[in-house]
Design a protein around this nucleic acid. Sequence first.
DNA 1: TAGATTGTTAATCGATTAACAATC
DNA 2: TAGATTGTTAATCGATTAACAATC
Lengths: 223, 223
Amino acid sequence: MNGKPDYIIPEPTLRRLPRYYNYLKALLNRGREVVSCTHIGKDLELDPPQIRKDLAYTGIRGVPKVGYQVAELIKNIEDFFGWNNIDEAFLVGVGNMGRALIDYKGFSRYGFKIIAAFDNDSEVIGKTFNDVEVLPLSKLTSLCQRMNVHIGVIATPDHAAQEVADMMIAGGIIGIWNFAPAEIRTPEGVIVQNENLAAGLSVLCKKLQMLKQSGKIRQEVRE
Amino acid sequence: MNGKPDYIIPEPTLRRLPRYYNYLKALLNRGREVVSCTHIGKDLELDPPQIRKDLAYTGIRGVPKVGYQVAELIKNIEDFFGWNNIDEAFLVGVGNMGRALIDYKGFSRYGFKIIAAFDNDSEVIGKTFNDVEVLPLSKLTSLCQRMNVHIGVIATPDHAAQEVADMMIAGGIIGIWNFAPAEIRTPEGVIVQNENLAAGLSVLCKKLQMLKQSGKIRQEVRE
DNA sequence: TAGATTGTTAATCGATTAACAATC
DNA sequence: TAGATTGTTAATCGATTAACAATC
């Protein structure tokens, strides 16, 4: 075994699937039972064959001339990501971003739950936000181990990110969702997903700049 | 003119440049004056030729055997994105995410400033966060026009996103940074940058799932 | 049946990676 | 000078797009 998974799913596909999911949920709410890629493609401005390939990764089978069962599609995407079993996570850094993440109700839809938060500011330690208690940072590593938590969210200032990551990894965390605009070095076997708001903002502003320079262009940037 | 810019800069490059920028600023703080792509590549786990190509878009010239002047590189990236002139923006939706964005001090580094916020909840209208006043949503369109604001940030619940986008566009906004997990339809000439936290989260959790199934794999996911 | 849509295979496109001459 | 690094051109790789047979 070389370590790589047998079947690699393209990351663009992984990023589009949650989008289909939100769209399909809205469709179902409006009472639609069946949908074709042609139809989805019109609404989402994507090419039908691409949608077909993306959806095929979830194991769905469509019916020629008809399309897919909306409810079945939703179920398949949920199963594909495993959103039915909850992933529990610790969050470090109860600043504005951290608070926003703690307070965000929408994550439960994606099988994700922040079960405790950590900070070293005595102002927030002991407080509770959205039923999530803030504990002293010193307890992070031991609690990771004791509670068998495998996912960590970093929402600290950038200078603290590496140190927090090290504590998480020492506690057995193997997946880090990093909101700090800093480079994190990790050993093999740890997955880091960087959420860099500056990147998205920069892309938007640069495209705007280019648009202003070159006359109107039509464009939709997808995440 | 077909509307497309003559020189297309790859979006992956646009997303990596702010990363180089943060890294280079940290280097400069530590007193480093010159850096080579080999060196950057080691720290950021990227291939040196790719870094060289990315940096070339900013117009930098390096010196063989030596590398690049760190300060000059930083300057070039700032000029490339136009971070020296501030882009002013309106934000709609003063929930947790909206508050986090309003409060975030780091955007000024990227030439971005939220100058007013809008909501239709009388609880928050009239309040001020981080010197940003919350105004009634009904004033959005007219103020966009009057203050000549061209960028809008949507941080509303998903069901309100389209309506807010329409109001923004009516006011002349041509760039929308969308944090609502909803599809926004816009006319030509409007750029939408979707910031989809669920996508990043899903990618992380899916990779973790695959890692657990197939034994340890080493992986670093970059945004 | 005719026509729309799926599923799959092939072609294209664009970004990354490799190769290498130029240069300090 | 020798060797490391830049800048540039070519090759590779992977994702998107196009083509088309199968099918309801």
